[in-house]
Design a protein around this nucleic acid. Structure first.
Lengths: 231, 231
DNA sequence: GTCTATAGACGGATAGAC
DNA sequence: GTCTATCCGTCTATAGAC
């Protein structure tokens, strides 16, 4: 008699939300936030046009939800890995390379998840660090802040001799390298015909990135100490 | 009698084009391509709404013109600097740091040009490497291609012992660091309250970037040689 | 070359039936 | 929760007067 009830049992209560989030993740990655319309998005998700506003309130709120869903667990994993390493080290400072791997590992593992949409998200995330909309960058910054503080502390203990402002810049360079590497798809092919499958080989990429970033973070201090800023 | 004629003499023939390009550069940097409307753009430029289509044909063609105007001279300067260095070296291979400086110098000099709009363009460019629209990335790649080939050759001569595919990846990492550093404005402040004026001190930034990138490019090869790709 | 006016399509959001 | 129908604003592009 109540067909609606039996249908609802087949379809879990939050499936619509999830379908919307997955479709949004992919379309935002492919075309950007502005260029993705609610009509495209709901069509791809196989849900009604009005469902986005019902479940999320607005397009902006949906964008926020897309990032919260993944970033919270991603940064928690980063912090957990750092906790594990520090417990293991029992008070001794960590190796720089180990901290780097703890940071980049979360993103690299996700890039191999092509099915679950993780790869879509990682590419979207890498681009969004430099999104024109201040509101979006600020959301990302807020979601990153706890992990950022945690890793900054770990690097400070690992590199006690490095000036604080230099460390901040080198961490900034590190995020840049990672963000761009995960977001960009064309440059490598542009420079040289690189095998497409290499781009998503997380183990190979991790080795390459770690070697590059470790050397950069540990680089000798530049001599331009005469370039002093005015008070 | 002919007031229109005297007015036209005050206003050079291409001033309208230039005003449009300058306004577009700034608004594209601030809000992105999609979020910038022709109405905002022409209002800011102080020209008529129809002027963009008259002078450029379409919004897409305007976007292309914005990049061509700056990138052509920027990459020509990069190549000229490399020519100069190689002539000076008279056959000996160049130092890695010198090649790096020849590449990043063009962008860093532009970032100091706040008045002429150079800074706007650099931040826009840094973000556009990872633009969602394939058409735009492809344009950028095309405008970069000659300089890219030239620098790849210079690095190959400077680092003859480095495997070609490893070099390509390290150059990719280098572009990423530079692109992100020039495009991003928030991360440095997020990690630590960095003095805002430092972000645009090109000499300081050049020293920091060169130290980081040189070490990264010259890093020992990673040991993951067992990770072989299938044919 | 510059302007006004408008065509014509598409955007996000919502009211209200079911 | 889901759906249809629709409001109303904004968009790019262009026609045609000056």
């Amino acid at each position: 008699m109540e067909i609606a009830v039996s249908l609802r049992q087949i379809k879990p209560p939050h499936e619509t939300r999830t379908r919307i989030l997955d479709a949004a993740e992919e379309l935002f990655m492919l075309h950007g936030f502005e260029a993705t319309s609610m009509r495209q998005l709901t069509a791809k998700a196989g849900v009604n046009l009005a469902a986005v506003n019902y479940h999320f309130g607005s397009k902006d709120a949906l964008i926020e939800a897309v990032f919260r869903r993944r970033l919270d667990v991603m940064n928690a994993a980063r912090i957990a890995e750092l906790d594990r390493l520090e417990k293991e080290a029992a008070g001794r400072p960590l190796a720089t390379a180990a901290i780097i791997r703890a940071f980049i590992g979360a993103g690299l593992r996700m890039i191999e998840d092509a099915r679950g949409g993780g790869r879509n998200f990682i590419r979207l995330l890498g681009r969004t660090y430099t999104d024109p909309q201040k509101q979006i960058r600020s959301l990302i910054g807020q979601l990153y802040a706890p992990a950022m503080e945690r890793f900054k502390g770990a690097f400070e203990r690992a590199l006690p001799q490095m000036p604080r402002d230099e460390l901040v810049w080198r961490m900034h360079f590190m995020f840049g390298t990672l963000a761009y590497t995960l977001a960009a798809t064309d440059t490598v092919q542009l420079i040289a015909g690189c095998k497409p499958e290499d781009r998503y080989d997380a183990r190979l990429l991790e080795a390459r990135l770690t070697a590059f970033l470790q050397a950069g973070l540990l680089a000798p201090l530049h001599e331009a100490k005469d370039v002093k800023k005015a008070a």
